[in-house]
Simulated assay, not measured.
Amino acid sequence: MGEEIKRPQFGNRLLENVDEVFKHNAWDNVQWDSEQEKAAQEKIKLNSHITFTEDTLKDLDINADKHWDEFYDIHQNRFFKDRHWLFTEFPELAPDYNSAPCRVYPNGETNETKIPNNTSPASKRFIFEIGCGVGNTIFPILQYSQDPNLFVYGCDFSSKAVKIMKENELYDTKRCEVFVLDATNQDWDVPFEENSVDIIVLIFVLSAIDPTKMPGVIQNIFKYLKPGGLVVFRDYGQYDLAQLRFKKGRCISENFYARGDKTMVYFFTQEEISSLFKKAGFLEEQNLIDRRLQVNRGKKLTMYRIWIQAKYRKPLQ
């Protein structure tokens, strides 16, 4: 037996001396003081005044797919970077890939997940990503996992995004299938059975959905996951830089905004995520705030990012 390779730890870059802030491009687990929190609350209060007309609000909702089509028409596959950090945050997505650094959290939590006893290494494994876009999550999964039993499904409600993904040379119909789906529909038209998916991926996608429609999405996720299946979730947290940057007149409802291109974004609290999933019947395995300080060393700018990361398990019974 060869010696086990110890993976490097990720999450240890802590800013202990503010004078060194421009020494690196990013700092992990950055805590806010009360003044910073208060300043963020004031900014949110300023940009939360709702000025949209009923007709505009209706357009944002009814034509959400068209607005995302226009987004991908403009940006094609150039806007989002491939998410190679996925396996640090969610090692379950490619368990046979052991070169990603281990994630370290300030409260001592680990990213290790207990595999339920209804799976075996040789069985067929299905991953389903909701809001797959142009493949920035699916392609890295296929690239880093060589498991012949893995098959990845993806959906997006932008037909343009699905078309762009299918034209990518990395798209392999033997290993993945993507299709158009509005996940807010009550009934899903999907190419797999209920209780059949091992992992469902929600990465920066639930935030694009009207908050009133989120419970229905979570209920359908529960329906299609197999007993013991896992949801991995990462999305915008309240007071993230993106929320603080909104100007007056972009607010749809509390913590919910329309960007200039008419795509929408919601900013979550941990409690909201916990409530959404637990009410649908899920067991909570992880729910944490990832506070990252990103630095533009050239322009001497600091940018505080806040993301919520979570894992929810469908009970075996």
Rank of each mutant, 00 (worst) to 15 (best):
E177H: 15
R125D: 05
T184H: 02
P148Q: 01
A208C: 15
Y236A: 09
S145G: 13
L142V: 09
F246V: 02
K223M: 13
V162Q: 00
P116G: 01
S159Y: 05
L225P: 05
L230G: 05
Q146I: 13
G228R: 08
S159H: 11
P116L: 04
D198A: 08
R125W: 09
K213T: 08
L244V: 02
N149H: 13
P215Q: 09
W188V: 07
Q186G: 12
V152E: 00
C251A: 15
L225Y: 02
G133E: 07
K213C: 11
D210S: 15
E177I: 08
N220G: 04
R234A: 03
F246I: 02
D235F: 00
N136A: 12
K247N: 14
I252N: 07
K248F: 13
F222H: 10
E167M: 12
A122L: 13
K160R: 15
A161Q: 05
T173D: 14
I252R: 02
I252A: 08
Q146P: 10
D240H: 05
K166Q: 15
N118W: 07
A122P: 11
D156A: 11
V201F: 02
S120F: 07
E129I: 00
N255T: 12
L170M: 13
N117I: 06
I199M: 06
E167H: 13
K248S: 15
G229R: 10
Y239D: 04
R175W: 08
F246Y: 11
Q243C: 08
K163I: 11
N220V: 01
V217M: 09
I200E: 05
Y257H: 10
V201S: 03
S196K: 03
D198K: 08
T173E: 15
I218Q: 01
R234Y: 07
G133F: 04
I200A: 05
V162T: 10
L170I: 08
L225A: 01
F233S: 01
Q219K: 15
T119I: 14
C132G: 08
N185I: 03
Y153P: 05
F204W: 08
M165T: 11
V134E: 01
R175C: 12
K163F: 10
P227R: 06
L244P: 09
V201H: 05
N195S: 14
Y239F: 14
P215N: 03
E177Q: 14
L202G: 00
D198G: 11
F179I: 04
K174C: 07
D235R: 03
S145D: 03
D187C: 13
F157D: 06
K163R: 14
F204L: 11
G133I: 09
K174V: 09
L206W: 05
I209A: 11
P191S: 00
G237H: 09
D182R: 10
N117L: 07
Q186S: 14
S145T: 07
V180F: 10
A208I: 12
P215Y: 14
K166Y: 03
F151V: 04
F126G: 02
